[in-house]
C-alpha cells in the first residue's frame, strides 16, 4: 500500500484521478445496462403497485366535520367570529396581527411578505356564507350593527359557556348574554351539515377557483381535523412530516427535517420553523460543498469502504 495518503481533494491536477484513464479497460455497455435497468425497475413498479396499491384516505369536508363533530365545529365557528382562532391571529400573509410571525434575530420575514392572501375569518368563514342563504338569519343584522367591543364580549362569553357545557354541547349551554352568536353559529352548523358551506367558502374565490387556502385554514382551526392527523401519526411532533397514512412509506427522505422538530431547543423555540428551514438550507449547502471541506471529505479515506467498491481492482493491482 502506498505510504503517501491518497488525495481526496476536489482539485484537478496532474494525478491519476485527474487524467483520462489510460490503463486497462473492460467492456461496459451503458445502453444495455439502461435497458436492463428499465426492465427490472418496471417489474418492480408494476409488482409493488399491484400488491400494495397506494393510499387514498378521502378528504375531510366542512360537511363531514360538522356532521362528525358538531360541538367542535360550533366552538371553532365562534372563535372565527370572535377573531380568536389560529387563522384570525395568524398574521402575514393572511391578515395584519401585530407582533406575530417568527423572527430570525431582528428580521421578521413573515411580516415582510405582507398580507398577500387577505382573510377576515368572521366575514369569510361565517357571516359571508350565511348572508348567501335564501333566508339569512335575523341575527346577522344584529351582529353587523353591533360595535366591535360588543361582538367580542358576546363571542368570549359564548366560548366560555361552550367550554363549560356538558360535552361542549351547544344545545346544553347555560343561559347568558351571547347576543346573536348562538344563532349565527347554529345556522352555520346547519349550513355546513347540508353541505352548502363548502361551496360557499370555496366560491368566495370566484367561479374558477383552485385555491383551497380558506377551507383548509378553517378546517385546521378546529380540533377534529388535527385530531384525525394526530391519530394517524401525521403531526409535526410525531415525525409526521415523513409519514403517510396507513403503512405506506412516506417521505422518509425528510427524516432530518423532521428530526430537528424533535430536538427540544429547536422544536420548542418560538421561531422553530425558521430555525429548522435555516438549518436544513445550511446543511444542504454543506452537503454540496463536502468536496471542499477538509475533514468531511477525508472520512472516506479514514474509513476505507472504497476497498470494497474497488476490491477487484485492488486485488489485481
Amino acid at each position: 500500500m502506498s505510504k503517501i495518503p491518497a488525495s481526496v481533494s476536489w482539485r484537478s491536477k496532474d494525478d491519476i484521478a485527474s487524467r483520462a484513464w489510460t490503463g486497462k479497460k473492460r467492456e461496459y455497455d451503458l445502453f444495455k445496462e439502461l435497458t436492463v435497468g428499465v426492465i427490472v425497475v418496471g417489474v418492480l413498479v408494476v409488482g409493488l403497485s399491484a400488491v400494495f396499491s397506494s393510499p387514498d384516505e378521502p378528504s375531510v369536508t366542512l360537511k363531514s366535520w360538522a356532521t362528525a363533530a358538531p360541538a367542535d365545529f360550533v366552538a371553532t365557528a365562534t372563535a372565527e367570529l370572535g377573531g380568536t382562532s389560529g387563522t384570525a391571529g395568524y398574521g402575514a400573509p393572511y391578515n395584519n396581527t401585530p407582533d406575530v410571525g417568527q423572527k430570525l434575530g431582528p428580521i421578521n420575514l413573515q411580516s415582510l411578505s405582507g398580507v398577500q392572501i387577505p382573510i377576515d375569518t368572521a366575514v369569510d368563514f361565517v357571516t359571508g356564507p350565511l348572508s348567501l342563504q335564501a333566508n339569512p338569519p335575523q341575527a346577522l343584522s344584529t351582529w353587523t350593527a353591533a360595535a366591535t367591543d360588543q361582538r367580542a364580549s358576546w363571542t368570549s362569553a359564548y366560548t366560555d359557556a361552550l367550554t363549560k357545557a356538558p360535552n361542549n354541547d351547544p344545545t346544553q349551554v347555560a343561559v347568558g348574554d351571547y347576543g346573536p352568536v348562538p344563532a349565527l353559529t347554529s345556522s352555520l352548523l346547519a349550513m355546513a351539515q347540508q353541505g352548502a358551506l363548502d361551496g360557499a367558502i370555496q366560491g368566495e374565490g370566484g367561479f374558477f377557483n383552485l385555491d383551497y387556502t380558506r377551507s383548509i385554514l378553517f378546517l385546521g382551526d378546529g380540533a377534529y381535523f388535527v385530531g384525525l392527523a394526530d391519530g394517524a401519526h401525521l403531526t409535526g411532533d410525531q415525525w409526521g412530516m415523513m409519514n403517510e397514512t396507513g403503512n405506506y412509506p412516506g417521505q422518509s427522505w425528510l427524516w432530518l427535517f423532521s428530526f430537528w422538530y424533535q430536538v427540544p431547543v429547536v422544536g420548542g423555540a418560538a421561531n422553530a420553523d425558521i430555525l429548522v428551514v435555516g438549518i436544513m438550507l445550511l446543511l444542504t449547502v454543506l452537503l454540496g460543498l463536502v468536496p471542499f471541506i477538509p475533514g468531511l471529505r477525508t472520512i472516506p479515506r479514514w474509513i476505507p469502504i472504497h476497498r470494497l467498491v474497488w476490491k477487484d481492482y485492488y486485488k489485481r493491482r
Binding site: 384516505e57 417568527q102 420575514l109 413573515q110 411578505s113 385554514l217 401525521l234 420553523d273 425558521i274 428551514v277
Partner: peptide
C-alpha cells in the same frame, strides 16, 4: 385527499415563516 389537506395545513407554517408562503402557497392547488 386527506393526506394532502393535512400536509398543506402543516407545511404552510414553515413556508410562511420564511416569507414565501403567499407565492408558494401549499393550499393553492393551481
Amino acid at each position: 385527499n386527506f393526506d394532502s389537506q393535512w400536509i398543506a395545513f402543516e407545511a404552510k407554517d414553515a413556508l410562511n415563516a420564511v416569507g414565501i408562503g403567499a407565492w408558494f402557497n401549499v393550499a393553492n392547488l393551481g
